[in-house]
């Protein structure tokens, strides 16, 4: 079986896996990194959203071979030790999570949005397609706006 090396949350890792194994399962089943969640497996629900080289990607539809040599960040790697990322901080302030299952993906999507667009409009926030079955959307929206403020100050 081929092996692939990449970095996850700043650490270099190597996995034995078939080339077409979705990166989600390399992360979860081989490396025990369980922050990215399975919700659909076909790039629809966005629960698995993580970052690759600083951009949002969906590991459920990205073969592990494609992430070789690249830098992956999952929700576990977003905070700086105990210091939360402003988006996480805003999420706590707004008490966004209900069951919490979609929230790693929501947060990683929001971080990616705010990197591209430091002061997003409602229409730009609308473009986030992550499903929240608990229906927390309004708090997600408020938390993104609050995070934008925190990141400016």
């Amino acid at each position: 079986m081929p092996t692939y090396s990449f970095t996850v949350n700043g650490e270099t890792v190597t996995v034995d896996a078939p080339a077409d194994l979705p990166a989600l399962w390399a992360l979860r089943d081989k490396l025990g990194i369980t922050g990215p969640k399975y919700g659909c497996g076909i790039d629809v629900c966005k629960a698995c959203t993580s970052h690759i080289d600083g951009e949002a990607f969906n590991p459920c539809v990205t073969p592990v071979a494609e992430i070789a040599g690249r830098e992956v960040t999952t929700i576990e790697g977003l905070a700086d030790g105990d210091v939360l990322h402003p988006v996480q901080q805003a999420w706590l302030e707004q008490d966004v999570a209900q069951c919490g299952y979609c929230q790693p993906g929501q947060i990683m999507a929001a971080v990616a949005l705010l990197r591209r667009t430091p002061d997003p409009t409602d229409a730009e926030i609308d473009a986030i397609e992550n499903v929240c079955r608990c229906g927390t959307y309004f708090r997600v929206r408020q938390a993104i706006k609050r995070a934008a403020e925190l990141m400016r100050s």
């Binding site: 939360l84 996480q88 929230q103």
Partner: peptide
Amino acid sequence: SRVDARAMVTGRQRYTL
């Protein structure tokens, strides 16, 4: 706020799998 909110935003909240 939820008692488990921090676990949820840091990816440490554990679900069955």
